[in-house]
Design a binder for these strands. Structure first.
Lengths: 194, 194
DNA sequence: TACAATACTTGACACAGTGTCAAGTTGACA
DNA sequence: TGTCAACTTGACACTGTGTCAAGTATTGTA
């Protein structure tokens, strides 16, 4: 674990991020990553066992860079359920573009790679918990819409906030990021608050 | 175009549907389809130029079998915007499980296959128009929520009704089909009706 | 009845991408 | 000077798609 080795590992992770961000949905191959990191394709496998493993480690590295978790945690500070819902929608909504490239690659691998599925599911599980926290706060204040049980509202919110939906609205429908956040807040309020 | 040729083509399409429905997300290979249709892999290419082409033709065949389009059109009969919204959510929501296997395979191919993207986008475009029709009816009745322009509401509804969201809620969260329809109707009413 | 066309089979191969292996190089550190 | 770790080089196995050429079998038709 010399400093040279650390440097190479970081270079690989950064190359992966750059390529995925610029890939626009096209597949990023191990060869591309190696080239970008100025290394041979084979040497990649000295640092990461498989392509899936590399992608998974890239998501962790992204969190490290952006301090994403901390920002999501901040929504806990909100004093009312309604504000917490808003804060969570905003925090998560702004998190998505940061991880979009990697997320898309992982989701695409899900059909063939068991490890990729697991890694992505774990991340989505964390998000599910964040949704639950906001919904439960609403519920305890007796402000949750009677149309949904807390579990249903949590599942629904979690589903609404998926990366795929963000992709649909911003990339395919051309919504701006701020429009996305704004309208999602409105929808969440209309749907879940009594 | 002898009757024997027609029969083989149908056998291939049916084999594809069966395998995709039973595949549970696993990749279905040309070899698998050929085996199921009691034909050689190479012979598949006498009927369909590529795997993407086969999948696309399979979606058309599914519509033929289920008469899906006719059912979606029925929602046009609704007398009020609110009823039309409900009817559309129900018609589309019940359409999804029918096409889910094929849809998933097409979506998975989107990363690598241009033709698959196009085919799937065309289908989604049709759905977008159905959403627009319901939302515009609401708007003309002055019953559309002031939170959204008709365009925004259409985009949003279209996004909410995606196959991926259906997958999230029914398969990952364990919602029943009727629960899915029920809660989606509620959400649509809460979000879009003034 | 013979022939021709059509549908399909057989066996081979090219190609892309992942992952593996063995042997060689290079640089740092002791 | 020697040794260890990180990396390179070149080769190869494997999977899946798509292609090609030659052969067979069935059907319709002159």
């Amino acid at each position: 674990m010399s400093s040279a080795s650390l440097k190479t590992r970081k270079r690989i992770l950064q190359a992966t991020i750059h390529l995925l961000e610029a890939s626009d949905g096209r597949v990023v191959r191990m060869t591309d990553i190696a080239k970008k990191a100025s290394i041979t394709r084979q040497a990649l496998y000295l640092h990461f066992k498989t392509r899936a493993e590399l992608l998974i480690q890239t998501t962790y590295y992204l969190d490290e860079i952006y301090g994403s978790e901390a920002r999501l945690m901040q929504s806990r500070a909100a004093k009312t359920g309604a504000k917490r819902l808003d804060a969570y929608v905003e925090a998560w909504g702004n998190y998505i573009p940061e991880i979009y490239g990697v997320a898309k690659a992982l989701i695409a691998m899900s059909d063939t790679d068991e490890a990729a599925v697991k890694a992505w599911k774990k991340r989505m599980q964390d998000m599910h918990e964040g949704c639950a926290a906001a919904i439960n706060m609403l519920d305890h204040e007796r402000r949750l819409s009677p149309n949904f049980t807390p579990e249903q509202a949590t599942d629904f919110l979690w589903c609404l906030l998926s990366v795929q939906n963000w992709e649909h609205l911003t990339i395919e429908c051309g919504w701006s990021q701020s429009q996305y956040i704004e309208k999602y807040k409105t929808l969440a309020q209309a749907a879940f608050i009594n």
